[in-house]
Amino acid sequence: MSSREEILKALQGVQMPAKAYPGTFTSQVHGEDTLADFLHSMQVVSTTVLQVQDASEAQPLLDEHFPKLQRVRLEKLSDGLSLAHVDVLEITGDFGVAENGAIWLDDAILPHRVAPFICQHLVIYLSKKNLLPTMQEAYIRLGNQLTGFGVFLSGPSKTADIEQSLVIGAHGARSLVVVLTES
């Protein structure tokens, strides 16, 4: 008997009462102002937010924010290692979650899966129209569509493994700027 069969047989042999699936969680309480909640979460996760009319309005602000660094936007690429020297990567996020500042990125919009992790700094463009209150709404929006890989990203990479001192910039991006556009 294979281990697979052995494990399944052991599990099937356990007599226990059936427990019903509780269904979809629907008791979430929404904040009154999704945008304000999102901005607050961004602050909690050490993220700079630029509120602008459209992407073009953000350019001088980003020039000012990253005075010496080159910002790039990339097409699909197959070589993740080549991204190791990207200073500032610009991408467009799918939607954001107000309660925790998480932004959904997936294979459909990422030039490479490693892109938002390997770059030194990250800029995500996000439309104000694409803000959702909680993770419950986020998963309703995602449905069961699979692109292969997707990530909820909330803020720059961080660690507190040395004496619980918060250090921003562990292995992933050292900083995150979210450009929040009206359109």
């Binding site: 969680f25 979460s41 909690v44 996760v45 309660e99 925790n100 500042g101 998480a102 997936d106 992790f117 909680t134 993770m135 419950q136 986020a138 998963y139 699979l146 692109t147 292969g148 890989f149 997707g150 990530v151 909820f152 990203l153 909330s154 803020g155 720059p156 990479s157 961080k158 507190a160 992933g172």
Partner: peptide, 25 residues
Amino acid sequence: GVFLRLLARSATGQLITTYSSHFAK
């Protein structure tokens, strides 16, 4: 949606972990 709301808040008091990565393919 339920578990990711609970996990990081319970663990460290964070709103969510920085990365919640979904590997499908």
